[in-house]
Design a protein around this nucleic acid. Structure first.
Lengths: 248, 248
DNA sequence: GCAAAAGTGTTATAAATACACCCATGC
DNA sequence: GCATGGGTGTATTTATAACACTTTTGC
């Protein structure tokens, strides 16, 4: 029924899932990468991911690969599909398409080097995208699209709080926006926006003593998922696009 | 190497593409559907789509299937990936995942019934989603998600003009918003928003005589792709969600 | 003239922006 | 006291919402 020499034949395909896991760490946006332990691209950096198994759901495969390759428990993570990459030439081993997922997580330690990976670790996104060597496969493209998606999501949703360890301060949350968008926000206007949007953050009543300055009020994530009206990059976009361009 | 009885084995998968093609026709949002000519789901309505072929790109497969099954030339269409659906149980024939695409097009005639399809035709989206029988496979879910994506895209982008045949009037464009969102907009405020957003529409200088009333100025699509600030459903969302709920 | 739809103007409200200023802490 | 960041207040500008009003057509 299936004849490889017939270009009109259906193609049997192997399917992988790849994960773009972002965090804010040391005031920079970082992404979880592994160093590949096998060819192709042996020794190169890549997104964690791997083949789906018989009867396995796509999102289940993503969680499993994340656990296996990086030791990160993704059960609390909100995984969202980014896009599917299916260029016939994207994998030298043959026809492999990949379903890319995106998730945002608070800064957490990563240890374990798993089966297919020599090591898993956080790397600054801007640095990774500037490096000449680049990532394995088409992972540079995936990472770029994930970055743009994350930036856009901060505008219309409350997911920025997913980067924060509870309880957190308004300044912690603002830092997330500043790091992901690449420019500074006005602290007083930002606080107003966040505190006056129902369900974005909930005050705990506690305060945290800082190294310097007045202690800051602490908050937990609220229940709202959408920001309306949104928190737009608008006027600053000209500026932010400069820094995006610099990454290309 | 691959052992079907081993649940840890990589799964060889067949990949399809499915297309959600929307148009506004007779003042309703309609979707291009085919009637399936073969099992499974023979005789049932389904999204146009089919298997990708050896060495074929995903978007190329989408364009080809559209042409084959509906006779529609998609080369001028902006196809955008919606999401990939990969539930192990979604296709009774075995493991088949599908990459869904979304496109908006002006009202155009559809004729031809192609290879795998008995007939292709436009159907009102609200009617399709209300029908008990439902679409083949998980196409109801795909259609619902496509509808929400399209509604959302009208807020942040200028794609609504993709529904209009050039040249068009501001009222034509407003009708698109009203039909897709399911509620009326204020004509004067809408016109201001559209004409004052750089690159949304360009005046041709011509006018069109209507059946009734004053002739309307004609416009072409502009070059802008993003709307900033967006044209939000905001306050009306409560109302629009009612009509969405009614579709479920 | 009337009806109908295009198109303009005006006012009220809400939100984003810019920035001055006060507060609470460590030293 | 000072420096530092947290937090409040306010004037300006910009965008939306609601709606009155004028214009241009067919009949």
């Amino acid at each position: 029924m299936i004849n490889r020499s017939d270009s009109r034949a259906r193609e049997q395909v192997l399917v992988t899932v790849d994960l773009v896991i972002f965090t804010v760490r040391e005031d920079r946006l970082q992404v979880l990468l592994i160093e590949r332990g096998q060819p192709p691209f042996e020794g190169r950096l890549a997104l964690p991911g791997g083949y789906i198994r018989v009867g396995e759901r796509l999102d289940a495969a993503a969680l499993r690969e994340l656990q296996e390759e990086t030791g990160v428990d993704g059960s609390q993570l909100h995984l969202e599909q980014l896009r599917t990459y299916g260029d016939p030439e994207r994998d030298p081993r043959g026809r492999v398409i990949t379903v890319a997922y995106l998730a945002l997580t608070p800064d957490m330690p990563v240890a374990r080097a798993g089966t297919d990976a020599r090591s898993a670790d956080w790397r600054p996104v801007d640095q990774v995208l500037q490096e000449e060597a680049g990532l394995a496969f088409d992972h540079d493209v995936i990472l770029r699209e994930a970055l743009e998606r994350a930036r856009s999501q901060l505008e219309y949703t409350t997911v920025a709080s997913a980067f924060c360890i509870e309880p957190f301060t308004i300044a912690d949350l603002r830092c997330v926006y500043e790091v992901v968008w690449g420019f500074k926000l006005d602290p007083s206007n930002f606080r107003r926006k966040v505190t006056r949007t129902d369900g974005f953050v909930e005050p705990t009543g506690e305060h945290r003593v800082q190294e310097l300055g007045r202690p800051a009020a602490l908050y937990r994530r609220g229940t709202a998922r959408l920001l309306s009206p949104p928190l737009l990059r608008s006027s600053e976009v000209a500026h932010s696009q400069l820094s995006t361009a610099a990454l290309r």
